[in-house]
Simulated assay, not measured.
Amino acid sequence: MKPQKNYREMGCRECLGGGGLHFDFSMAFQPIVSLSRREVFAYEALVRGTDGAPADEIFRHVDENTRYRFDQACRVKARSAVS
């Protein structure tokens, strides 16, 4: 894996705010269900636009220069939504 060109350390608060990304996004959560036990045992975090736009519309804004920031922002947003 090639190192990110514009990599720099970021704090969680900065990632939560988008970490310098020029677009905003939200997270949706899809339950993962055990049919045999008939219960939800986990959730999958899915990227969405703030207006509900699908993930592919958000991914169009991600390139080599924003991939690391986007990845970190996704992790922090998903984690903060369930904390």
Score class of each variant (00 low, 15 high):
residue 1 M to Y: 13
residue 1 M to N: 15
residue 1 M to H: 14
residue 2 K to E: 14
residue 2 K to H: 12
residue 3 P to K: 15
residue 3 P to H: 15
residue 5 K to S: 15
residue 6 N to H: 15
residue 7 Y to A: 07
residue 10 M to E: 08
residue 10 M to F: 04
residue 11 G to I: 06
residue 13 R to H: 06
residue 14 E to M: 02
residue 14 E to C: 01
residue 14 E to W: 00
residue 14 E to V: 02
residue 15 C to I: 01
residue 15 C to V: 03
residue 16 L to G: 04
residue 18 G to E: 02
residue 20 G to W: 09
residue 21 L to I: 02
residue 22 H to C: 12
residue 22 H to F: 12
residue 24 D to E: 15
residue 25 F to I: 05
residue 28 A to S: 11
residue 28 A to K: 06
residue 29 F to C: 10
residue 32 I to H: 00
residue 32 I to Q: 07
residue 34 S to F: 02
residue 36 S to T: 11
residue 36 S to C: 09
residue 37 R to Y: 11
residue 38 R to H: 14
residue 39 E to P: 05
residue 40 V to E: 05
residue 44 E to Q: 02
residue 46 L to G: 07
residue 48 R to K: 11
residue 48 R to E: 09
residue 49 G to Q: 07
residue 50 T to W: 10
residue 50 T to H: 10
residue 51 D to W: 07
residue 53 A to S: 15
residue 54 P to Y: 10
residue 56 D to R: 03
residue 56 D to I: 05
residue 57 E to K: 13
residue 59 F to I: 07
residue 63 D to K: 05
residue 63 D to I: 01
residue 64 E to Q: 15
residue 65 N to T: 09
residue 65 N to H: 12
residue 65 N to I: 05
residue 66 T to L: 01
residue 67 R to P: 03
residue 68 Y to M: 05
residue 68 Y to K: 00
residue 70 F to E: 00
residue 72 Q to C: 07
residue 72 Q to Y: 05
residue 76 V to K: 00
residue 79 R to C: 08
residue 81 A to T: 08
residue 83 S to P: 00
